[in-house]
Write a protein that binds this DNA or RNA. Structure first.
Lengths: 111, 111
DNA sequence: ATCTACTGCAATCAAACGGTTGCGTTCGCG
DNA sequence: CGCGAACGCAACCGTTTGATTGCAGTAGAT
C-alpha cells in the first residue's frame, strides 16, 4: 500500500529547473516574503515573480499565507525531502543493477 | 572551503524535467541500450533520443560505452544520489528556520 | 468613505525546447 | 573490399516558457 498518489518527479523537477525560481527559493528559505517584496530585491518584475510563485505553490514547494492585504510566501522543505528520497531510491536501483552485473562478471572470472 | 565543485541543481533538474527523458532513464535503469535500440521501443525518432542522451550525459546521469559500432548507454545512480542529498540538505534548512520560528512563538506564549 | 497599495488577469514578444526530416560519415561485418 | 548499419550534423517547425507592460479589482489603513 503505497501512499495514494506516488510522487511524480517531473513537475517538481520542472519547477526546480529555473534559476530565477531558485533565487526566489533562496530568499524564502531565509524569510517569508510577498511577491512585491521579492520583486524589490530581484531583477525581475512583480508579475514574473508572481507567476513563479504560482508554479512553486502548485507543486507544494511554497505555501501562501495571507497577512493582511499582502500574501506572504513560505518555503516548504517537505516536498523537497520527498523528491530527494524518491531520487535516492531510483538512483540506488540503477547502481544495484550494476553491482549485480559486476558480481556476475566476477563469478565468471572465478570459473 | 566548500567541496571543489558545488553541485548546481538547475541543469540536473532541467534534465529531469522531461517525461521522455524519464522513459529513457527507466529503460537504461533496467538494461544498457543504444540510441537506436531505444528508438525502437519508444515513440520518438532516433535523433530525438540521441539529443536526450546527450543532455543526460552532459549532466552525468548517463554514461556512453562504446560496444563495437554501437554506443550503449548506462544509467548512473551517483549523480542522482548527489542531487538527492543536496535537495535534502536545502529542504532541511528551510524547515529548520520554521522550527526556530515556532520555538520563538512558543517562548512568547509561555511569557 | 476614500485613498492607496497590493494582487490578479490578459495580451504580447523573443528565446528555448522537443521533435522531425534529410544528408553525410564512419566503421564493423561478411 | 564493399555493403549496410549506426552515429552525428544541420535546417526547420510548432509549442512552450520566462518576461514585460498595461489595466482592472480588492481590501487595509487613515
Amino acid at each position: 500500500m503505497t501512499p495514494p498518489t506516488e510522487l511524480d518527479p517531473v513537475p517538481l523537477c520542472a519547477a526546480l529547473a529555473d534559476a530565477t525560481r531558485w533565487e526566489i527559493l533562496a530568499v524564502l528559505g531565509d524569510r517569508d516574503a510577498s511577491a512585491s517584496e521579492l520583486a524589490e530585491e530581484l531583477p525581475v518584475s512583480r508579475q514574473a515573480i508572481a507567476k513563479h510563485l504560482q508554479q512553486l505553490a502548485a507543486v507544494g514547494l511554497v505555501e501562501p499565507i495571507r497577512a493582511g492585504r499582502a500574501i506572504r510566501y513560505r518555503a516548504l522543505g517537505a516536498r523537497l525531502g520527498q523528491l530527494a528520497s524518491r531520487l535516492e531510491t531510483i538512483g540506488r536501483g540503477w547502481d544495484a543493477r550494476l553491482s549485480r552485473l559486476k558480481d556476475v562478471a566476477e563469478a565468471l572470472d572465478q570459473d
